[in-house]
Design a protein around this nucleic acid. Structure first.
Length: 541
DNA sequence: CGTGCGTACAAAT
DNA sequence: TGTACGCACG
């Protein structure tokens, strides 16, 4: 994770600090790192999905830290990860497989009666799931703690907030474990914070202005710095063999220009350099510079920094490597924690689950800072979807809530007029409808390409099984409501919706596939047809 | 000299 | 799992 060896290389600029220096300020939190750490304490219970309070220990851990920040009069802003970027798909898949083997082995140990051995393996198998994030969100809501679910990388969202002015609800620092934050250009990152608020801080301005320390970044700016990070190897692109952080630094500081550094690299390591490295390099840098983030005040997705015209031309206007575009209404639903950003389904919150996170537990978890009756709040905020299964047609009862009411009356939505109705319905029936349909409608009207991201790492992608004709067949896009047990809501997204572009590993392949899709789309189905299909679907349900 | 690999250890109560 | 440190190779 992150930039290889970056923190070690930056050691002279890493300074011990205490979080209380940010008293009275807003500080961003990379939720994933605390969720992950918290999950260790209850890894077995999480893996086995056992009943009881132990499973919720990670919430305790998280809120403990939140309360510590509040103790120092810091305003926490919690940022969650959203969907995965296409170029990360392959790595995520492998990780998931490894975790699965660990879990299976742990189960074996448990059957043997070796509990200690099992726990060790469960700890390796533990994953932070969207559902865990969602449970945490319920508590954050009840505690009036600000949060936002990023459309894609939380790091990019945190960088965006970091570069906002304070009076525009920006943050002054980020608490994280991930060195990527620096590559994204976060002015202040607080690493390795412990339970008491001690940690290690890197302030980018100090890095760029310091004249005494080695290595010197005196002649760097954020763009050169990001370029160095990508050269050294990052999550989006492995480095050229033999190039690590030190060589990357030398190249960039010597030529002070990424193009020249790149051509010198090609000159020296041309034989070991992949054919499409230069293109991939540009794209990786562009992810750090122009990632898609959610603008809370505009209630829509935008770029971290606007994309310059030249870059757009260089990329052939193909921006899918930043992750598919997301319509404002969906982006807002994601950002507010109402829709799982990986599956685009509504979160399953059952009364039983809410109970777990509530009453006594909330009191315990939130301590003296609890401001309201958490239980009532939690149940109010959670959408409760119940489907009673029957063999002929499934009935669905929906309890709407404040959150969805807000979305329905959101003044910022700018989907084309004729789709407003569908959008409202989408928000009401969140689990069973996806915005690809909306996207298609808008696309044919405004000639824009819009897709629903589908990067659920938990789902096996079988791209080769998808018939080309299925891709744009609207009936295929209508989600099926499958047979369910008791109150469980399971809404599957059909195979055809699973993204083709998340499969390819390299950018060339990625581009080719998306181009093909574009062509296919352009010659089928009128938007009117699609809209009717959607509305028919709603009336059926 | 730096990369890249192996080994050791900690993470949370 | 991931991270930090030490050593050997190019």
């Amino acid at each position: 994770m992150g930039i290889k060896d970056l923190l070690r290389f930056m050691k002279p600029y890493v300074e011990p600090a205490h979080i209380k220096k940010y008293a009275g300020k807003r500080v961003g939190i990379d939720a994933y790192s605390w969720l992950h750490k918290g999950a260790y304490s209850c890894s077995m219970e999480l893996c086995l999905n056992s009943d009881g309070d132990k499973k919720l220990q990670y919430l305790n851990y998280f809120m403990h830290r939140i309360n510590m920040l509040r103790h120092y009069k810091i305003t926490p802003v919690v940022v969650f990860d959203g969907g995965n970027l296409p170029c990360k798909g392959a790595t995520e898949d492998e990780r998931h497989k490894r975790r699965k083997t660990n879990r299976d082995q742990a189960m074996l140990k448990l059957k043997e009666g070796n509990v200690a051995g099992a726990i060790e393996l469960f700890q390796r198998a533990v994953t932070v799931t969207p559902s865990m994030a969602h449970q945490l969100i319920q508590i954050l809501k009840s505690e009036n703690i600000e949060f936002v679910v990023a459309p894609y990388e939380a790091d990019a969202q945190l960088a965006f907030l970091s570069n906002l002015e304070e009076e525009k609800n920006g943050i002054v620092a980020v608490i994280s474990e991930d060195s990527d934050l620096l590559a994204y250009g976060c002015p202040a990152v607080f690493f390795k914070m412990d339970a008491h608020g001690n940690g290690q801080e890197v302030v980018l301005d100090h890095v760029f202005s310091c004249v005494t320390r080695v290595p010197s970044f005196r002649h760097f700016n954020i763009d050169l710095f990001t370029g160095m990070c990508v050269l050294a190897g990052c999550d989006f692109l492995p480095s050229v063999p033999g190039i690590g952080i030190a060589k990357a630094y030398n190249l960039v500081s010597k030529y002070r220009n990424l193009d020249r550094a790149l051509s010198m690299l090609k000159f020296e390591k041309g034989d070991q350099m992949p054919e499409d490295y230069i293109k991939s390099f540009r794209e990786a840098v562009a992810v750090f510079r122009h990632a898609r983030i959610y603008d809370v005040s505009l209630k829509r997705i935008k770029h971290l920094k606007p994309i310059p015209e030249e870059l757009l031309q260089f990329l052939d206007e193909e921006l899918d490597f930043l992750g598919p575009e997301i319509l404002p209404s969906l982006a807002t639903a994601i950002a507010q924690g109402n829709i799982d950003p990986c599956t685009m389904e509504a979160f399953n919150v059952f009364p039983s689950t809410v109970k777990h996170v509530s009453t006594a537990n909330i009191k315990k978890i939130c301590g003296p800072f609890s401001r309201q009756e958490a239980f009532t709040q939690a149940s109010k905020d959670s959408s409760v979807f119940a489907i009673s299964s029957s063999k002929s047609r499934k009935e669905m009862t929906v309890e709407t809530n404040q959150a969805s009411d807000e979305q329905m009356h959101c003044p910022y939505m700018d989907e084309s007029e004729c789709l407003d109705e569908a959008v409202a319905l989408q928000n009401m029936l969140r689990p069973s409808i996806s915005t690809r349909k909306m996207g298609e409608g808008k696309k044919s009207q405004q000639n824009e390409v819009l897709k629903v991201p589908d990067n659920n790492p938990f789902r096996k992608r079988k791209v080769e099984e998808i018939e080309p004709d299925e891709m744009d067949n609207v009936t295929e896009l209508v989600s099926e409501v499958t047979e369910v047990e008791s109150l469980e809501v399971i809404c599957t997204i059909p195979e055809s919706q699973k993204s083709v572009e998340s499969k390819p590993v390299n950018s060339m392949e990625l581009k080719r596939v998306t181009k093909e899709k574009k062509v296919r789309r352009s010659n089928c189905h009128s938007s009117e047809n699609k809209k009717n299909t959607i509305l028919n679907f709603f009336s059926r349900v």
